[in-house]
């Protein structure tokens, strides 16, 4: 999940009787599966939660370009390079759709950027792990995009119209990402023993961080309960994680790879796989900024923003000059 720990400002979910009339009407619209649109009245908590969630989601798309960008110049063939470029370009586009969705809630994109660069706004923990070999590009597409899709499919039904519409668009484009990742893994697994070993090594390193993408267990999380009540999200972290495991384990088996968890076992009774305990200490450490690549990612992000400043400013100067000229010679064009 690209937004893993979204606070809602709620200490518990209000019952319908405790709400004031405006809030009650709002909740009834949500319960009737009506979409909430930018100009509609909404509780401040709903607005803030969405700004946080969509912001984290957008930042994740943008920061997510960095681990993959690492391999563009070293992709094994020209075709793989073109594919990876297209994928990274898609991530930029997804970030832009999401920033625009967040902006409908009254925050500006530049402000969100500032929050990211100041370390005040989070992005997914997954992008703080390094892409050490080409197989990591396969594993990222297969597992990380696979987990993202699992999350984003249910977000298409989110109660907030602009977010839901951005998700529809993103989901359409995202399935190419997962398939190209699995395609890389297949190629490696059908290759030399060393190549297959490389694929196994990538799976070993990306498996647990991918499970962490769905966020901590939410049985006791009030934020998760509030987000569900508002239909900002439609499935719990644990449900999505379970679905991801059920989908991915057979895909690993097809590749002839082994998921790095001795506890993974089919459970006939629940109709899904049992799996081991995720190391949540590691998750919280990475979120706090202590993952293997947090500092590097922020450094690269800030550098890209600062290095691009002259282009942004130059374009504004040109636009201002042209506007001034047009204003000075209103009739000349006739």
């Amino acid at each position: 999940m690209y937004a893993q720990l979204v606070k809602t400002d709620a200490d518990r979910v209000k019952s319908i009787d405790e709400m004031d009339p405006q809030e009650r009407t709002f909740q009834q619209r949500i319960d009737d599966n009506q979409k909430i649109e930018p100009k509609d009245w909404m509780p401040e908590g709903y607005r803030k939660t969405l700004v946080r969630q969509i912001g984290q989601h957008a930042h994740s798309e943008i920061v997510g370009q960095l681990p993959e960008g690492n391999w563009i110049t070293r992709a094994p063939t020209l075709e793989r390079k073109a594919i990876l470029l297209a994928k990274v370009q898609d991530e930029a586009g997804h970030g832009l759709y999401l920033y625009c969705a967040a902006e409908t809630l009254g925050i500006s994109r530049d402000k969100m950027m500032d929050q990211l660069h100041a370390g005040k706004s989070k992005y997914s923990s997954i992008f703080n792990y390094p892409t050490l070999t080409w197989a990591d590009i396969g594993a990222v597409g297969w597992l990380v995009d696979g987990a993202a899709i699992m999350n984003q499919v249910q977000l298409q039904r989110c109660s907030y119209g602009p977010y839901s519409r951005a998700m529809v668009r993103i989901c359409k484009e995202e399935s190419f990402h997962q398939r190209q990742g699995y395609d890389i893994m297949m190629k490696l697994c059908q290759g030399t023993p060393e190549q297959k070993e490389m694929a196994q090594d990538a799976l070993n390193r990306w498996w647990w961080p991918s499970l962490m993408m769905f966020g901590p267990p939410d049985a006791d999380s009030v934020h998760s309960a509030q987000s569900m009540a508002w239909k900002i999200k439609q499935a719990t972290n644990d449900d999505l994680r379970q679905r991801f495991v059920d989908q991915t384990v057979p895909q690993a088996e097809y590749l002839g790879l082994k998921v790095p968890d001795p506890d993974v076992k089919w459970n006939e009774e629940k109709g899904g796989y049992d799996y081991g305990e995720v190391d949540w200490d590691e998750f919280y450490e990475v979120l706090k900024g202590n993952g293997p690549c947090n500092a590097e990612r922020m450094h690269d992000r800030v550098k890209a923003w600062e290095d691009g400043a002259w282009v942004r400013e130059g374009l504004v100067a040109h636009a201002d000059k042209m506007a001034a000229r047009a204003a000075a010679t209103p009739v000349a064009a006739e």
Binding site: G93, L96, R109, M322, A323
Partner: peptide, 19 residues
């Protein structure tokens, strides 16, 4: 289809093409 930021109309068309 959506929105985007751009300094002027020509750049907006250009960005719209890309996005």
């Amino acid at each position: 289809v959506g929105s985007l930021h751009a300094p002027d109309a020509a750049m907006a068309v250009h960005h719209a093409r890309d996005v």
